[in-house]
Simulated assay, not measured.
Amino acid sequence: MGFQASTWWWIATGILVATELYTGTFYLLMLAVGTACAALSAHAGLGSVGQMITSALVGGLAVTLWHRRQLAQRSHEPLAPAGHNPDVLLDIGQQVQVDAWQPGGQATVRYRGASWQARYAGSATPQAGPHTIRGVEGSTLLLDA
């Protein structure tokens, strides 16, 4: 039992899709689009060289366009410094209780079972009460009301 060329292309497409699902590498899905187009060109009667060229062109173009799209999206996102980036520091956005502020906007707060130095980073006059962590500089929490 011999397979037709289109069957081999469909098998390659299935392998690429399965591998993409396992690894999460979206680029493999773009290559699978190329192999699927090669399978369709085999069904249309295109020769083996034409099928390979179709796979390479469509898959390569899809990968290139996806990569450019990803780069364009990343270039529009402003990168926050690590001390103010909630993707880097999970403490950002958490609440702490400030019992009293010292002169200069300094305080000592309990957070995660330890005493931390804190500095007021807001624009208003600091008041005792709940505050939100807006950043971290060294071991000092930057707080805002």
Score class of each variant (00 low, 15 high):
38 A>W: 05
27 Y>Q: 12
28 L>C: 09
45 G>T: 02
32 A>V: 07
39 A>Q: 07
76 H>K: 15
45 G>E: 00
74 R>Y: 06
80 A>D: 07
74 R>G: 14
38 A>T: 12
83 G>S: 02
72 A>N: 08
61 L>E: 00
80 A>K: 15
59 G>F: 05
78 P>R: 14
50 G>K: 07
57 L>V: 15
56 A>G: 14
45 G>C: 02
34 G>H: 11
86 P>Q: 00
60 G>I: 01
56 A>P: 08
27 Y>R: 09
55 S>I: 00
73 Q>K: 13
53 I>G: 10
89 L>H: 15
47 G>E: 08
47 G>Q: 01
76 H>G: 04
25 T>S: 10
64 T>R: 13
47 G>A: 10
46 L>K: 03
76 H>F: 11
86 P>S: 01
29 L>P: 01
83 G>Y: 09
29 L>E: 04
41 S>Q: 03
51 Q>A: 09
30 M>Q: 04
50 G>I: 04
67 H>I: 00
63 V>F: 07
31 L>N: 05
58 V>D: 01
42 A>N: 06
87 D>F: 11
38 A>R: 03
30 M>L: 13
63 V>E: 13
56 A>F: 14
41 S>L: 08
61 L>G: 12
73 Q>M: 14
61 L>T: 09
52 M>W: 14
26 F>L: 14
57 L>Q: 09
87 D>I: 05
57 L>K: 07
50 G>C: 05
31 L>P: 10
67 H>M: 03
